[in-house]
């Protein structure tokens, strides 16, 4: 009898283990699929673009002759825009998150605000472009400038920064804050010295993701009137500009194959800039994590 029970139990265990293995395999296949897709994409771009990549490509302005054209204006425009966007969006986003999470009373109004912020994160980027055109370019009369572009992209990524920063702040154990307060520290010092530093790794992750998104955005920039052919680099926030995604889009839609190679080479540069900035942020995050 026990023999029979044992075999059924063994059978069940075996089948459970099979399901377990199957589950692992499905998950692995999913990972493999996205990794392969990414690899195919990067490989395709690298194959087309690596031959065009040299210093003169980075240090030249666009040209009708594909082999003479470069991305100086677009790269400078992107760096300006992203730099300003970080300076505008990160402080405002962080302050908003701290207010919502640490200062504001948990009442209905705050919940409504939080709900709206979450909704704003899902609004298509072209709408931010239209808003930027109406408010920054026309109403505030900033013109089609770097500043107007940076303000528009800041609006675009603010909800993401606020939400991720809030999550990060929420994850800091209550005991830390209470411990600090019990020692007689004011709430403001507690936030600055205890809560924020502990939440920093999470906040940085949010900033990385948001800024990466901003860097790849084309639609809102075109809507507010970013240029396409620019033969100078911006000297200040009030200059006109173009950006890498716009340059890539323009070259990719040209009939001549030589311009498609330029587009591929620009994509490599955009990816490199993106990776570089993420790397800096990741190093900062890991440092913060060790210290915390």
């Amino acid at each position: 009898m026990s023999q029979a029970v044992e075999t059924t139990v063994r059978k069940r265990i075996r089948s459970r283990k099979r399901v377990e293995r199957l589950f692992g395999m499905v998950c692995f296949a999913a990972l493999l699929l996205s990794a392969l897709l990414l690899f195919a994409l990067v490989w395709g771009v690298a194959k087309d673009g690596i031959g065009r990549l040299n210093w003169s490509f980075i240090d030249s302005f666009p040209s009708r002759i594909a082999s003479r054209a470069g991305i100086k204006a677009a790269l400078a425009g992107t760096l300006w825009i992203i730099g300003l966007t970080i300076l505008i969006a990160v402080p405002i986003g962080l302050a908003s998150a701290v207010y919502l999470e640490e200062v504001a009373p948990k009442n209905r109004l705050v919940r409504i605000i939080e709900l709206n912020v979450a909704n704003l994160a899902g609004v298509p980027s072209i709408l931010y472009g239209l808003l930027g055109l109406a408010v920054f370019v026309r109403w505030m009369d900033l013109g089609r400038t770097v500043l107007a572009g940076a303000l528009t992209l800041s609006l675009l990524i603010l909800p993401m920064i606020i939400i991720t920063a809030q999550e990060a702040l929420r994850a800091v154990p209550r005991a830390y804050r209470e411990g600090s307060l019990a020692l007689g520290t004011t709430p403001w010092r507690t936030t600055l010295k205890i809560t924020l530093p502990c939440a920093l790794p999470g906040i940085l992750t949010g900033v990385i993701l948001s800024v990466s998104r901003a860097m790849g955005e084309t639609a809102p920039l075109i809507t507010i009137g970013a240029l396409t052919y620019v033969a100078f680099t911006p000297t200040g926030p009030n200059d006109g500009f173009t950006a890498l995604p716009i340059q890539i889009f323009n070259w990719a839609s040209r009939p001549q194959a030589a311009f498609h190679e330029n587009a591929a080479a620009s994509i490599i540069v955009l990816l490199a800039v993106l990776l570089g900035m993420n790397l800096i942020a990741i190093v900062l995050r890991d440092r913060a994590r060790r210290k915390a």
């Binding site: 730099g83 530093p197 680099t233």
Partner: peptide, 28 residues
Amino acid sequence: MTNKLALAAVAALGALVLAGCGSSGESK
């Protein structure tokens, strides 16, 4: 707390990026 440093570095990241392309603006 050196974490203040890291926090400031986020802002510095932005400033750095701006400074990096400021010099290329002189016209030729």
